[in-house]
Amino acid sequence: MNDQDSKPHHGDVVADPPRGFMARVRNYFLTGLVVAGPVAITFYLTWWFVNWVDGFVRPFVPVDYRPETYLPFPVPGSGLVVAFVALTLLGFLTANLIGRTLVDLGERVLGRMPVVRAIYRGLKQVFETLFSGSGSSFRKVGLVEFPSPGMWSIVLISQPPSVEIEAKLPGQDEHISVFLPCAPNPTTGFFFYVPKSKVILIDMTAEDAATLIMSAGVVQPGSDPQKKIAALAETVLAAKAANEPESAFSRHRVKAPDKAPDKVDQA
């Protein structure tokens, strides 16, 4: 067999050498971290919220009605159950005539307090807007050209401006208020008024938009969960590789072109 047949031809790409054991361990560790990280953080935040509600509600529950009084260990979530039952009962009573009368009386009392009045009215409007089943604030998602021409950002559409603000806005176009969340923390961002004609509505839920922003575009709406995990893993590996210096073994080696044979003069 000719030795030249086993040599790579001109332009052939030489495959990378097999990766070492530690490189495989590192990749497996990063992939496991990507899979387990969101689950661990979700459980941690849920556990923190349950304990926070328990610590807030437990002082209002008599000692004789606490589960730990009869059990040798505390029961997490008991305060959350009490809070859920209490809020549900409050909503049921508020829907009746007597409950509405008591709520109106309490609002009149709060309305006479100079500082508390402004805080209460603002918080009430926010809660009614966010948790009302018939409200439309932050339930529609759109695109606006921001921060410069040719660059588009995802926004959550809120309410139209008030009459006073609409009268001061320049132009005759109808305006709409939008909230532009920042990545990776969508709870912070920019609030501004923009002409309604400049907003492009997109078929996306607010939850999908928040996921897209928190993942910085890695997790796309409607994608398969396994593809989401694979995309996150590839992002971590790409970021890790970008921070490491490139070695000669990690580059594709291309065989140098052979020297052209000397031209033979024809007899």
Results as ranks from 00 to 15, higher is better:
Met1Tyr: 09
Pro8Gln: 13
Ala15Tyr: 01
Ala23His: 12
Phe29Asn: 00
Glu166His: 08
Pro76Arg: 00
Val236Asp: 01
Arg58Leu: 11
Pro245Met: 02
Phe56Trp: 11
Glu164Tyr: 06
Val82Gln: 04
Pro160Val: 05
Val35Leu: 14
Ser132His: 10
Ser137Met: 06
Ala238Gly: 12
Thr187Met: 11
Val178Ala: 06
Val254Ser: 10
Ala210Phe: 09
Gln172Trp: 07
Ala83Glu: 09
Ala239Glu: 14
Ser162Val: 02
Val199Ala: 00
Leu97Val: 10
Gly150Tyr: 04
Arg117Met: 03
Val141Gln: 00
Ala206Trp: 05
Ser6Arg: 09
Pro62Met: 03
Leu30Ala: 14
Pro59Trp: 08
Phe249Gly: 03
Ile165Ala: 07
His10Arg: 13
Ser250Gln: 15
Asp5Arg: 14
Pro245Glu: 04
Pro261Met: 06
Ile200Trp: 08
Arg121Gly: 06
Phe179Ser: 03
Gln220Ala: 12
Lys255Trp: 06
Arg100His: 07
Pro114Tyr: 06
Val35Trp: 09
Ala231Val: 01
Lys168Leu: 14
Ile157Ala: 00
Pro67Ala: 02
Val25Lys: 02
Glu174Lys: 13
Ile41Asn: 03
Val116Asn: 02
Phe43Met: 12
Trp47Ser: 15
Val103Asn: 00
Arg58Lys: 13
Val178Cys: 06
Thr205Cys: 07
Tyr120Ser: 14
Val264Tyr: 11
Phe21Thr: 11
Gly122Gln: 13
Val236His: 02
Ile157His: 00
Pro195Ser: 08
Ala238Asn: 11
Val219Thr: 02
His252Phe: 15
Gln125Ile: 10
Arg251Cys: 14
Phe190Ile: 08
Ala241Phe: 01
Ala260Cys: 02
Thr101Met: 13
Asn2Ala: 15
Phe73Ala: 05
Glu207Arg: 08
Val14Met: 10
Lys140Asp: 12
Pro195Met: 07
Ser162Tyr: 01
Ala256Glu: 13
Pro62Ser: 03
Leu90Cys: 12
Glu174Met: 08
Ser6Met: 11
Gly217Ala: 00
Pro38Ser: 13
Met113Cys: 14
Ile154Arg: 04
Val81Thr: 02
Ser223Tyr: 07
Asp258Phe: 10
Gln266Asp: 13
Phe60Tyr: 14
Ser247Ala: 09
Gly99Arg: 01
Phe190Glu: 04
Leu90Met: 14
Val13Gln: 12
Glu234Gly: 06
Glu68Pro: 05
Phe29Pro: 01
